[in-house]
């Protein structure tokens, strides 16, 4: 009971502390004039060539990230700091570039009306790519440590091991075995485990509002799309004869229906991973938008009092997002396992 009260007191304290931090910000941005919530939110959930720490415009402090371009004249590498937050044109011996709305264009090709211009292929280590690599390193560190633990102590798990073991068993016993079956599940376990922890960790890192978090990687359609395409390959490359037969020549129905079903089934092959990609992207991005909108409310209303409502609400949504982070990783992995299970199932002949 006493502990509970303490907890309440501390959390209230945190809410007030954060409220004042935001009030501070109201003053800072208020002096600059109009606040565009839409622009702010889109900027926060989009990818960026630099890691923004604090400040506005020219005075802002950012960590520059490497820019890697494949241009007409070959590979071009430099640091994004050279753009000076998009104010300056960068000229190298391979070409000259401009940074407009966090996108790199060949200098002078961008037109304001069309909102587009000529772009080199951009393989830069952006904020999202940085987070991608960071999360991969974290996952490797965590699970290689855990794996070493098993070598050292074959008995009961300890520490990090006992934290991760139930999750690994969860993926195996609740996701892989029920959907793929006892016989074949072990082939797909590395894929499912990697997908699960990779998505979950990136969802969590996305919820951290400051460096090295704050990138909206798992809410980026490129990321979710790539994972979905990999899932598509895994599912269809492991599909057996029965699976393909069910797609192109559905057994047990009249021939006209077979012909009708084939294109529908073929569409479903692509629709399934498409749904995977959109679900993860939309859920995570939506969560970020809701949190950012609630914070933006303070600036739109321009009143300190708004923070008393907006911050607890944002905190609530953030905690909800912790659940969503797990849930979406789980759903993605579960559906991947389900699709694999359909592809490798031994059908009973009816």
């Amino acid at each position: 009971m006493i502990k509970n009260n303490h907890f309440r007191f501390i959390s209230l304290g945190f809410i007030f502390l954060f409220s004042f931090l935001f009030i501070e910000n109201v003053n800072a941005s208020g002096s600059e004039g109009d606040f565009n919530a839409n622009e702010m939110i889109m900027h926060h959930i989009a990818d960026s060539h630099e890691f923004h720490l604090w400040g506005e415009g020219q005075e802002s402090l950012s960590i520059p990230l490497p820019v890697i371009l494949w241009t007409e004249n070959g590979l071009d590498i430099f640091m994004s700091g050279k753009f000076h937050h998009g104010e300056e044109t960068v000229t190298t011996d391979k070409g000259s570039y401009e940074l407009i709305h966090d996108k790199i264009y060949y200098a002078g090709t961008y037109s304001e009306e069309a909102h587009t211009g000529e772009q080199p292929l951009d393989f830069s280590i952006t904020k999202n790519v940085f987070t991608l690599i960071l999360s991969s390193i974290l996952i490797c560190l965590i699970f290689i440590t855990v794996a070493k633990g098993y070598k050292k102590r074959p008995g009961a798990p300890k520490g990090l091991q006992s934290l991760m073991e139930p999750l690994v068993i969860f993926v195996r016993d609740e996701i892989a075995i029920p959907n793929i079956g006892e016989k074949k599940h072990h082939i797909f376990m590395p894929f499912l485990l990697t997908v699960f922890f990779f998505i979950w960790l990136n969802n969590l890192i996305g919820l951290v509002p400051f460096f090295p978090g704050s990138a909206n990687l798992s809410g980026n359609v490129s990321f979710t799309g790539t994972l979905a395409v990999i899932t598509l390959f895994v599912v269809n490359f492991s599909g057996n004869k029965e699976y393909w037969k069910h797609i192109f020549w559905m057994p047990g129905v009249p021939v006209p229906v077979k012909i009708l079903l084939a294109p529908i089934e073929l569409i479903s092959v692509f629709a399934k991973p498409f749904a995977l990609a959109v679900r993860l992207f939309a859920n995570i991005t939506a969560g970020h938008i809701v949190v950012l909108s609630l914070i933006a409310l303070i600036f739109i209303l321009g009143s300190y009092a708004a923070s008393l409502v907006a911050v607890p609400l944002a905190l609530f949504i953030n905690i909800l997002e912790l659940l969503v982070a797990f849930l979406q990783a789980f759903v993605f992995t579960l559906l991947a396992a389900l699709f694999i299970g359909q592809a490798v199932a031994e059908h009973e002949h009816h």
Partner: peptide, 13 residues
């Protein structure tokens, strides 16, 4: 922009 995949991130992912 939000739903346009970028080749760099696809490649790195």
């Amino acid at each position: 922009d939000l739903i346009t995949p970028s080749i760099g991130l696809v490649f790195w992912t």
